Amino acid sequence: MQDRQEPAETEERALYKRVIRSADALFKKVGFRGVTMEAVAREAVVAKATLYSYFRNKDELFIAVSARIAEGHRAGFTAALANAAGKTLDERVAAAIVGRRASLFTYMASSPHAEDLISHKHQLAGDIFVRSDEFMLRLLTSALREDSVLKPSAARLARALFYGSAQIGVNSASRTVLEADLEAFVMTHLAGARALADRT
């Protein structure tokens, strides 16, 4: 399924973004089944005809909202891994993993309908998130290859960090606890990978 192309013109783009933001807020507030195209048009203060010129139905609108969320994940992950002032590779990797997983924790806490919305995301927009995760995994692998000790196992280590971190937030009582647990998870794995490399 392809991501829907956003309008290029400035005013049209601003209007499109307002529709997406309004739809996202409504999905979180009332759940997938509770949202109607008419309610989104009211919330975004646009004519129904304008809304339907962008999206044929609620499914298409939901896919567009999902695409924007995935885009945000990729942007945050990319920024965290960037060689920022004074941060070590380990700190950058930890920041990227923490940011990626903490965003889901925040999303789950932001809506009583989060589980239902995630279920619909898997059904309607699963391929968008798969491609997004694949992009982030490639980026993480590339960053780990910067370290000559980690380079030979970079792809395997990236998978362990990226997918292994997914379950850590399940029982976290707060975002603060989650962030501390994720940082410890990343730092321990990186230190362990270096220790194993030194022994071989």
Rank of each mutant, 00 (worst) to 15 (best):
Gln123Pro: 00
Arg175Glu: 13
Ala79Tyr: 04
Lys121Leu: 02
Ala180Leu: 09
Phe135Glu: 15
Gly99Leu: 01
Gln167Pro: 00
Met108Ile: 06
Leu124Phe: 13
Gly99Met: 09
Ser148Asn: 10
Ser174Gly: 13
Leu190Val: 07
Leu157Val: 00
His73Asp: 10
Phe77Val: 03
Ser110Met: 01
Arg145Ser: 00
Asp147Pro: 00
Ala84Gln: 12
Val149Asp: 09
Tyr107Ile: 07
Lys121Gly: 01
Glu146Thr: 10
Gln123Asn: 15
Arg56Cys: 01
Phe62Trp: 07
Gly86Val: 05
Ile168Ala: 05
Thr176Phe: 10
Thr176Trp: 08
Thr106Gln: 08
Ala79Phe: 09
Ala70His: 03
Glu60Gly: 15
Ile118Lys: 15
Glu91Val: 02
Ala102Val: 09
His122Ser: 04
Lys58Gly: 00
Leu178Lys: 01
Pro152Lys: 00
Gly126Thr: 01
Ser153Tyr: 05
Ala82Cys: 10
Asn171Tyr: 04
Ala160Thr: 11
Gly86Pro: 01
Ala96Asp: 02
Asp133Ser: 08
Asp116His: 10
Gln123Ala: 12
Gly72Glu: 14
Ala96Glu: 02
Ser165Asn: 14
Ala109Lys: 13
Leu81Trp: 02
Phe105Gly: 14
Phe129Tyr: 14
Glu71Asp: 11
Asp90Glu: 05
Glu115Met: 08
Phe55Ile: 05
Ser165Cys: 04
Asp59Gly: 06
Glu183Arg: 15
Glu146Tyr: 10
Ser132Tyr: 01
Leu89Val: 12
Ser142Met: 12
Glu71Gln: 04
Thr88Ala: 11
Glu179Met: 03
Ala70Asp: 06
Leu178His: 08
Ala125Trp: 14
Leu161Met: 08
Val149His: 02
Pro152Arg: 00
Ser103Leu: 00
Leu190Trp: 03
Asp59Phe: 05
Ser111Leu: 02
Ala158Trp: 09
Ser165Gln: 13
Leu150Val: 14
Gln167Arg: 04
His113Ser: 02
His113Leu: 13
